[in-house]
Computed example of a mutant assay.
Amino acid sequence: MEELAEGLGGNNGHATWTSAQSTFMLTNLANVVASGTKTSKGFKKVHLNACARALNEKFATKRTGEQIKNHLKTWSRKFAKINRLRKLSAAGWDEDNFVITLDADHYNSHVEVHKADAEYLNKPLEHFAEMQIIFGNSMATGNFAKDSSAPLGAEDVETDTEEDAAQGPADGINTPNNDAASSSASRPKKKAKIAENEDDGLIKAFKSVGTDLAEAIKTAGKPDTDLPSDLFDQLKSLPGFEKTHVSFYFSYLVANPHIGRAFYALPFEHKIDWFALFITERFPGQ
């Protein structure tokens, strides 16, 4: 995946994101959603700042919460475009591998006009599961985020208009009579189709990210206070954490058993992500 560059807030400089850094950010914030701490209006500033601190620690960068927010907008536009391409009249959808499928004739016809769409068609979509978790429920509204108080996953009006104009007809397949069909009278119908994403909410998102994570979320809803007997042993086995951190996080899980059970059910690498996120929030600067 190519490196991505975005403007920094009000500066003229650019922040270059590597594939590894984007992966870390998306995984980190998807885990925040999985833990139930994301609000209905998106991520709070504390979530973005904690993600920046964790990323800086891992990659020795100097990211800010504002840069995390801006990079999220880049991925929200990707997710919006993917959802539009999934609605091409000739497109299929491979749910297991996250692939928008087109037969050879339709693919060649579409890509000939929309060359930039080739990276989204007939190949696995990188980080689709994480994007679905982070943006899935917000995308159903068709409104794209403009600031930290607006729902995440909503694209700027200017960007949406430009992509609609470049995309042409709603199905993306050009015919000799398409010039009339792509008039302004047909635009409202295309935009209205975005709202059909309402069925692709968080329930489907959690299903797509994998059996382990979905099971963790389901387990988190249990009302009892029981915790696995070897939970503390699992915490001690995680590399890179001090004894004080282990004790502190264990006391937190005991006080919040529903989170403790969800943590226990996670795969090994996700346990590390959850633990690291908690420590960066509670012990900033360490």
Rank of each mutant, 00 (worst) to 15 (best):
E158S: 13
P151F: 01
L213P: 00
I203C: 01
D199R: 13
S148Q: 09
G240H: 07
T161P: 00
T211C: 00
A220W: 01
P239L: 06
S148W: 13
G201A: 14
Q234S: 03
K204L: 12
P228N: 02
P223G: 05
G210S: 04
N178K: 07
I194L: 04
K222I: 02
I194Q: 04
P228W: 03
N178A: 08
A192I: 05
D199C: 01
A181D: 06
S208H: 11
T211N: 00
S247D: 14
S184Y: 08
G221I: 04
A216G: 14
I217E: 04
I173V: 12
L213C: 00
A195W: 09
P176I: 02
A166W: 06
S184R: 15
V246N: 05
G210A: 03
P223L: 11
K222W: 03
E242T: 14
P151L: 08
D199E: 10
T161H: 10
V209D: 04
I203L: 13
S247N: 15
I203G: 01
S182L: 03
E242H: 02
D147H: 11
A150R: 05
Q167T: 02
S183Q: 09
A216C: 06
G240A: 13
T159C: 06
P228M: 10
Q234F: 04
K191L: 10
